[in-house]
Amino acid sequence: MTFPAGSADRPSCSLSFDELYQNYATDVLRVAYYYLGNRELAEDVTQDVFVKLLTNCPSLEAGREKAWLLKVALNRCRDLWRSSWIKKVVLGHPGFECFPAPDMIGSLADQQTLSEAVNRLKPEFKEVVLLFYYQGFSVAEIADMLGIAEGTVSSRLSRAREKLQKELKGDEDQ
């Protein structure tokens, strides 16, 4: 198959498509998977994000590429989550499946519990937790990406922490 001429250099930023895919596609995929709990849908979201990158050719500031990719990914996840068909039929009983390395199987119980707890958070909490704790963005950056006030981001983070602590404590007690 032949690809469109110059497709690997389409995004107007300092990195080529190959570099952007290599550096950030897995992060986009995992954030989408955390959000939706479904591998096929997470791959579809990742595909949509990078197709949009190639077809729309946005002007990406150096160092802001990942923020743009994750912002588009979260918007797409939110759209899918709001779709009643997706919620009822596909994600009716989402089971958060782990994909550990072969030598880690059997020693991940605690870690799997944390991942599952994050997956069970409501979307608005899940977004800030993933961006802050998983992707390492600052509160200000998250506020900019999600279009909400910094205070709202901090408040959601605080409430998400409380919920996670309760959940994890409950699991520990059992």
Binding site: Y34, R39, Q111, Q112, L114, E172
Partner: peptide, 18 residues
């Protein structure tokens, strides 16, 4: 017990194959 601050490391382990 793993803490939320460890989410990056935990994710790298739990979603290693993803």
């Amino acid at each position: 017990m793993n803490r939320i601050e460890d989410l990056r490391r935990v994710t790298d382990n739990t979603l290693h194959g993803l």
